[in-house]
Simulated assay, not measured.
Amino acid sequence: MKPTIVLVHGAFAESASWDGVIKLLLADGYPAVAVGNPLRGVKYDSDYLRATLGSIQGDVVLVGHSYGGMLITNAATGVPNVKSLVYVGAFAPDQGESAGDLAGKFPGSTLGETLNPVKLPDGSTDMYIKQDVYHHQFAADSSPADAAVWAVTQRPITEGALGEASPGEAAWKSVPSWFLFGDQDLNIPVASHRFMAERAGSRRTVELAGGSHTVAIPEAAALVDLIREAAA
């Protein structure tokens, strides 16, 4: 029986960002779940993902994009049916590291200057990417027309989540991991991706020339090849 592929989107996206990947997985006979990431905070969101994992029978391959990597790193720890982790343009933190720490570890991220803050009634702040720069910042290797739609449907993340330290023992220390990212990622510098993949002992690292932060949308087939490898 094939493992269930659990897909966890990141900030400024939503579950439909996995559509191309999902179509290929289903055609291959893999069961799949695209989790609706709450984007409220690392611990809260990781606990939500862990609860979702508890509802799935059989083996699981966890796939995280961007901030979703923070969650798979925490939710998989101590969950015996999670057999492998796939990081897709994603953060792979060690305990105590935040997304902001890892994005700023090497030069190259221009995300901060593109963000539009929205103050919430409880005093917290939601962050969106400004629609007029979304294509360039987030999805330069996809069409402007597609990126314009994603800019409208993007889901915000709390400002606090980006600065929240990863609370638990990193799952990549005990669970095999694979990495895929683009070398033109403007959210997480490519040097940060390389550092995280090497530190995690990545079984295979795929670096795609010209790839944006959302490289797995136009390169869905490359990601599914890596997922197949992780599933095996």
Rank of each mutant, 00 (worst) to 15 (best):
D225T: 11
V79D: 04
R155P: 00
I157M: 12
R50C: 06
L26I: 07
F12E: 01
G104I: 00
G36S: 08
S15W: 04
A147W: 11
D94R: 14
P93M: 04
D45T: 07
L102Q: 10
M1V: 08
L208C: 06
A216V: 07
E14I: 00
V60H: 02
V33Q: 11
A32V: 15
L7R: 09
D126I: 00
Q154Y: 10
G182W: 03
E207F: 04
T205F: 02
S124Q: 15
D126N: 14
I188G: 09
D101G: 00
P167V: 12
K2D: 04
V21F: 03
D47P: 02
Q137T: 15
Q131G: 09
D225N: 13
D94G: 13
S192R: 10
G89S: 14
G41Y: 07
M127K: 12
Y134R: 06
K23A: 14
A216K: 07
G210Q: 02
G182A: 09
A16W: 13
M1A: 13
G29R: 03
G160L: 13
D132M: 01
W150P: 00
V133P: 01
G168V: 13
S84Y: 02
D101Y: 05
P144G: 04
S66R: 01
S17V: 11
L226T: 02
S142Y: 07
V35W: 06
N74I: 01
S166R: 11
R203H: 12
I56H: 12
L115H: 06
V175E: 06
G104N: 15
H65C: 04
T77H: 12
A165W: 12
L186I: 01
G168F: 04
V224N: 02
S192T: 15
D101M: 11
T73R: 11
P38N: 04
R203D: 00
D225C: 02
A231F: 05
N187Q: 10
L226C: 05
A13N: 10
A171N: 10
V215F: 13
P176F: 11
D122F: 03
D94S: 12
P93V: 04
E113Q: 13
S15H: 09
V8F: 03
I129A: 07
K83L: 02
A16S: 15
V8C: 12
V88A: 15
R203E: 14
L85Y: 11
S124C: 01
S177P: 03
P3G: 05
V206E: 13
R40W: 05
D185V: 01
K105W: 03
P144T: 07
V82K: 13
P121F: 10
L226V: 01
V82D: 02
H9E: 01
Y48S: 09
V88C: 12
H213V: 03
A75G: 05
G78Y: 08
I129S: 09
S202P: 03
H213T: 04
A221R: 14
A145G: 00
N81M: 05
G96V: 07
A13S: 09
A209W: 00
P80F: 05
R155I: 00
S98P: 01
A92G: 08
M196S: 11
S66L: 10
